[in-house]
């Protein structure tokens, strides 16, 4: 028995890819985004965390669309809306960051404390 046949028929990874595989991948993206938002001091780093969170949500939409044929248009359209919204959000957030940098000469989010009581 050759190696390729063995690797193909071994029970280790025999299970087909199901919805759960994709959902767990989306959860990894989501959690990494949350951790990124929590730990990054750089405002642009926080923005990257938001992008990761949105991507996790999009993976969920598309995988539900794939595994539930009733909703395959909905899954794709909501995912498209999420992508477009993310682009708009990035543009506005960068504009705010640039404005903040112009006023404070830093993009450290901890420096934005003027409204602290």
């Amino acid at each position: 028995m050759n190696f390729f046949l063995f690797a193909a028929e071994t029970n280790l990874l025999q299970t087909d890819i199901t919805l759960h595989h994709y959902l767990l991948l989306g959860a990894i993206l989501f959690v990494c985004g949350i951790v990124c938002m929590a730990t990054k001091r750089n405002a642009i780093g926080v923005l990257m965390g938001v992008e990761l969170v949105l991507n996790g949500a999009t993976v969920n939409f598309v995988s539900f669309a794939h595994f539930n044929p009733t909703f395959d248009i909905e899954g794709q359209i909501f995912a498209l809306f999420v992508i477009v919204m993310a682009a708009a959000e990035a543009a506005i957030a960068l504009a705010i960051v640039l404005n903040f940098y112009n006023n404070h000469f830093t993009v450290d989010v901890d420096a934005a404390e003027e409204l602290k009581g």
């Binding site: 991948l25 990894i28 993206l29 990494c32 985004g33 951790v35 990124c36 730990t39 750089n42 642009i44 780093g45 990257m48 965390g49 990761l52």
Partner: peptide
């Protein structure tokens, strides 16, 4: 995907 997402969260160079 997973390794890159963890990389985004871990690295400190922007």
């Amino acid at each position: 995907t997973a390794i890159s997402a963890i990389g985004v969260a871990v690295t400190s160079n922007i």
